[in-house]
Design a protein around this nucleic acid. Structure first.
Length: 455
RNA sequence: UCCUCUGUAGCUCAGCGGUAGAGCGGGUGGCUGUUAACCACUAGGUCGUUGGUUCGAAUCCAACCGGAGGAGCCA
């Protein structure tokens, strides 16, 4: 008999009749004449209640000794539940123990701390919370592809090992083949030159946009920053669209449309999991997501943002002044207190932004934009790229960069240059926003952070 | 890298100078269409590590290691 999933059985309108289900025991309650077994196979948040009568074969040997975490194969008939709390339950004819769980199985019915769950990252997807997080993660990855594919964007695989430093994106991991004392910088490089794990596929993405018009990347990204915060990881996934014949306005439009599309899709497709988050993780989650879905985002220039902050009457720990970076506390004020909704800040002073951003006509600012969301801060960073060869060359000089290192990037401006723009979306930050989970380590299966690369 | 907090049973935590505790989880028995089930009994610990102070340290001090939060950097 083919295996049915718990999700399939629970959403049936009529009884599917005789079925086989397989999964892991979440909890068991014994009665004199039978046992209740809560079986979960990860296909959905809910468990299937199994009624194992004391008369079924092997009851005394296996069912009585079942503990949380054991794996089972159950055959039986799906019947309407006599109890409250579930529509269907399965009256078992046969319960086969596939694998018992030792009595030190760490997951319990009671709540565990997130820190403890990180220490058992190989078992935590068996919990309600992490099962839900990773189902939503899968759905959002699918939805990102759907969003772009339906718009005719071409998915490009930019290299993971790269020799180019997307300046301003952060510290890089060095790729070497030698170990320890064998390693001398510049000597016997496998690739003939120093190479790193990518911090961004943007520069390579630009080359494909300047051929296929609209492209996106979606892949792993690496930063060797020694960051100890709830929003940073050494390995994370990033989505980077790049559009030819597009300016900063079109770039911001796409970013906002994308966030709204993903939030709407999560509300539609992940209802059960989001309800769980709303109940146990973040009580205002669904209300906030619906707000994002239904309302337009705020959009202010950097200069306006500085004015708002100065007029706010708030005292900030860090100074607010034109030419200074917006600090976390400033971003938080704008999006959480002033506008109370996702906010795009654009046109930043050129001095605080990287060389590739397009200089505006005012000569002072560049066409950069950051999309800030409440609770997380920056979720998207992007810009219109400098397509004018002479201005790009001035930028190399101003940023003290060697043009020769970027010859292929410069070529794009020599051979049929076009206005183009793009942005980077941190996939895990999106997931934090959509699930309400507060720590990036809890939305990535096996998080890599400074000093920690277990599993 | 800087600042702050934290480390006691499988898990969550109490104890804060004088014989190591509770709840949950495990085991055994009972009871009940139960659903964070319930009741009784029971097993379970080099109190992060090393050193110091003390008659005596889980408790006080120092260093180190691990974990967390914040800042910076950014996605």
């Amino acid at each position: 008999m083919l295996r049915s999933t718990v999700a399939h059985i629970l959403k049936s309108d009529e009884s599917p009749g005789q079925v086989k289900v397989e999964g892991w025991v979440r909890t068991k309650r014994d009665s004199k004449a039978f046992s209740f077994i809560e079986l979960n196979d990860g296909s959905c948040l809910a468990n299937l209640q199994v009624i194992a009568d004391a008369t079924i074969p092997g009851y005394k040997e296996s069912v009585v000794h079942l503990t949380t975490g054991a794996s089972l194969s159950v055959s039986g008939k799906v019947v309407p539940s006599q109890g409250k709390g579930q529509k269907w339950e399965i009256q078992a004819d046969e319960v086969t123990l596939l694998g018992k769980a030792d009595d030190d199985y760490p997951l319990q019915k009671k709540g565990h701390s997130m820190e403890f769950m990180r220490s058992i990252a190989h078992l935590r997807p068996r919990s309600n919370l992490f099962g839900a997080v990773f189902r939503v993660r899968s759905r959002m990855a699918y939805s990102i592809h759907r969003f772009f594919q339906e718009k005719g964007f071409v998915y490009v695989h930019t290299p993971i090992i790269t020799a180019s430093d997307c300046e301003g994106a952060g510290e890089m991991f060095r790729v070497v083949t030698m170990e320890g004392e064998e390693f001398n910088v510049g000597e016997e490089e496998f690739f003939d030159k120093p190479t790193y794990l990518t911090v961004s596929g943007q520069l390579e993405g630009e080359t494909f946009a300047c051929a296929l018009s609209n492209i996106y990347t979606f892949g792993p990204t690496f930063r060797a920053e020694n960051s100890h915060t709830s929003r940073h990881a050494a390995e994370f996934w990033m989505i980077e669209p790049e559009m030819a014949f597009c300016d900063i306005e079109g770039d911001m439009d796409l970013a906002e449309e994308m966030i709204r599309f993903l939030v709407e899709d999560a509300l539609d497709a992940c209802e059960e999991d989001l309800s769980f988050f709303n109940k146990f993780v973040d009580k205002g989650l669904i209300e906030r997501l619906e707000f994002v879905r239904d309302r337009s985002f705020e959009r202010v220039t950097y200069t306006e943002a500085i004015d708002l902050l100065k007029k706010s009457g708030k005292t900030f720990e860090y100074p607010v002044d034109y030419g200074l970076n917006l600090q976390s506390e400033h971003e938080r004020y704008l999006t959480e207190e002033h506008f109370k909704c996702p906010t795009t800040v654009y046109n930043y002073p050129k001095e605080i932004k990287p060389f590739y951003m397009r200089k505006n006509d005012d000569g002072k600012t560049v066409a950069a934009m950051d999309l800030l969301v409440p609770g997380i801060g920056e979720i998207i960073g992007g810009s219109q790229r400098e397509e004018r060869l002479d201005v790009l060359r001035e930028n190399f000089e101003a940023h003290e960069l060697d043009e020769k290192e970027y010859s292929w990037y410069v070529d794009l401006r020599r051979y049929g240059t076009v206005p183009h723009a793009g942005f980077g979306l941190g996939f895990e930050r999106l997931l934090m926003f959509v699930t309400g989970v507060a720590n990036i380590r809890d939305v990535i299966p096996f998080p890599r952070t400074p000093g920690s690369a277990e599993f």
